[in-house]
Simulated scan of single mutants.
Amino acid sequence: MHTRLLSPDDQGLAIACDWLLQGDVIAMPTETVYGLAGDARNPAAVARIYEAKGRPSFNPLIVHLPDRAAAEKVGHFDGKAQALAEAFWPGALTLVVPLRDDAGIASLVTAGLDTVALRVPAHPVAHALLERFGGALAAPSANPSGRISPTMAGHVADPETGLGGRIPAVVDAGACPVGVESTIVGWLDGRPALLRPGGVSAEDIEAILGEPLLRPELDPDAPNAPGQLTSHYAPRESLRLNATDRAPDEVLIGFGDIEGDMTLSASGNLIEAAARLFDLLRQADALGRPIAVATVPERGLGAAINDRLRRAAAPR
């Protein structure tokens, strides 16, 4: 299969929508990373997502929707969920809420759970595609399962490290501005819980809720939300964290005062670092040498960056 790059205009979106309506999958841009989209109501389309990624079927998917009204037809929103949706949608927040009985979502999307992960993306091209498609799109990151997430269309279309040759098309809208996946919030015994750090900081979410988020110990063998596998976002080469210098054979990715061969952000800007993270991991991995990454502070977007780095460095 040849993977085609589509322009993010009416013609490109019309072609992408035709493939989706036929039950196929395509990659689309979001503000976080590129997602591999398929009709969330079509079991065969959802199965194609798992097949193309090589993703374990016990790992649930995020459902993307054009607006809050559409999301509320899929899941039940209590007052706290409504407050978060109002504050952060459209945007880089995913909410795990009880699934409605009449939602029509394929059971593969939720991995058999009675909850569903929902997001309204802010990217204008993603929104335009969702509006044109007229339904819910399941869309995990558009990369082979466990590997580095894509923040550019070329990452997706690469036949060696991406999904080139496995999917028909990628809608190319340039680089993703946030660069790390969405934050995921769910509820445990009625209390809000951080299930995955991401593009919206926990501090900002807690400010809206007026209470701290639970930070539960998660079981990677029985995930209740996407992005919880122990080994994830991994380069082909080994990865060492909290580096202050490089070993002779290593590529060093710096941050702040630690310069490195390349840097997440010379000024220590966490927004810049998040946007550059996955692209620099790919660049370093292409050199075929072990990778070392400088320390990134565990605050704001730093929590999401460090979560991805710890999973990328985990034993495989």
Rank of each mutant, 00 (worst) to 15 (best):
I305A: 00
A85T: 13
A313K: 08
P124Q: 08
G174M: 02
R299D: 13
A106C: 08
A313Q: 08
L36K: 06
V74H: 07
D189T: 00
R41L: 02
R41K: 11
L93K: 06
A87S: 10
G300N: 10
A16D: 03
L99T: 14
V251T: 15
R119N: 12
R246P: 00
T263P: 03
S7D: 12
D10L: 02
A193D: 03
D101Y: 00
L36D: 05
A47G: 13
I62D: 11
D257S: 12
L213C: 13
G254W: 15
Q228Y: 13
A139E: 08
G91Y: 10
A234L: 06
S7E: 15
P248S: 06
L5N: 03
P29A: 04
R196P: 09
L270I: 04
D204E: 15
F88G: 11
S182C: 06
R276M: 02
L130R: 02
T263M: 01
H64P: 05
A304K: 07
L241F: 08
G300A: 12
R132I: 07
S145R: 07
V109I: 11
M1V: 12
A294E: 05
E131T: 06
Y233H: 13
A70Y: 09
P297N: 05
D78Y: 10
L95I: 15
H76C: 01
V125G: 02
L287H: 14
P235R: 12
I26S: 02
N242W: 13
P212R: 12
G12K: 04
E51Y: 03
A128C: 05
G112L: 07
A153K: 02
T161R: 09
N224P: 02
L252I: 02
Y50E: 04
L130P: 03
L309F: 02
A202L: 08
L309K: 03
E72I: 09
E160W: 14
G162P: 13
R132F: 07
R282D: 06
V33T: 11
C17N: 14
F255S: 05
G302R: 03
H127D: 07
T151I: 09
E206R: 10
S267P: 01
G179E: 07
H76P: 00
D204P: 06
L84K: 08
A303Q: 14
H127W: 09
D261G: 03
F133G: 10
L108E: 14
T263V: 04
D67R: 01
T32Q: 07
S7Q: 15
A153F: 05
R48V: 04
L281Y: 10
A85E: 13
L129S: 04
L264R: 11
D279M: 04
R316P: 00
H76D: 02
P43Y: 11
P43C: 05
R316W: 09
V74N: 01
W89R: 10
L108H: 06
A40Y: 12
V97E: 00
S145Q: 11
S145F: 15
D249E: 14
I258D: 00
P197D: 10
G35M: 00
V178Y: 04
